[in-house]
Design a binder for these strands. Structure first.
Lengths: 131, 131
DNA sequence: TCTCCTGTGTAATGATATTACATTCATTGC
DNA sequence: GCAATGAATGTAATATCATTACACAGGAGA
């Protein structure tokens, strides 16, 4: 797997996501990059599109936000799962081979050709439950 | 399980979703109900909130749309999964006990208390692949 | 009756995402 | 060198999705 050659905007967007301690919306990214020259949503969305392609960033469908991949070096792709804490906003990224194979089974049995799978558990994380 | 006593607006929104042959966005529902007196998005969103509570309607997070539950009589809840065709828009609703238990396992092991789980496979359905 | 709760009507606004069009810049082939 | 090409970028406008705020109507129960 060769490293991708990121453009300036892609670097900045990925940097903003990596520096954050949780998922960010596109408009939040935009705000954080305004003093670095960003002016319009499209600059963010275009960079995100590429970063999503490269697998360096994930989109959290259920909260319209984006996170840097937790394992940017091992591109062990397939369908990832996310646990999203509704209290603190923290996200845990994980994958489960059994879940993946069960969903793949269903798809095969039903002649469905999957392109992108979202598995998102919203709830309360251990840290927030402890409070 | 007692049948829910739906209000007029809830009936109309559920009716619109049941009559549709695929998921609808809130604004599409609004448009379809304009000649029945609907005027504002909130009328739709409020009805949807209740219908979601009752389990009569599901929200497809990845496409910001809503569908009538495919099994409104057997409220076999838990985390449902959806296969969404990006060509024709048709949605298949299904559930898989193994997937559910694996995700429940992960949650227990990590002290995460789930409230709502979304499992959505986007891709191409058998019918569209056959074309 | 009074209060409380739920549902409703309406306007305004906020939040997320895309379309359209012009420009810049590096690369390639002549 | 220099046109041709394609990717990335800049900007404005607009489309799409969702919520806040406030007012009113009607039923259930003290």
């Amino acid at each position: 797997m060769t490293a991708h050659d990121l453009t300036k905007n892609q670097e900045m967007v990925l940097g903003a996501l990596s520096a954050a301690d949780g998922p960010l919306s596109a408009y939040t990214i935009l705000d954080r990059l305004r003093d670095r020259g960003f002016r319009a949503p499209l600059q963010v969305y275009r960079a995100l599109d590429k970063l999503l392609d490269y697998g360096l960033v994930h989109r959290l469908e259920s909260i319209n936000s984006f996170v840097a991949c937790a394992h940017p070096h091992c591109h062990a792709h397939g369908s990832l799962a996310f646990a999203i804490c509704e209290k603190c906003g923290q996200v845990e990224e994980f994958s489960d081979a059994t879940v993946q194979s069960r969903l793949a089974d269903w798809s095969r049995e039903h002649g469905f050709k999957p392109s992108k799978t979202a598995i998102e558990i919203r709830g309360t994380c251990a840290a927030c439950l402890a409070v």
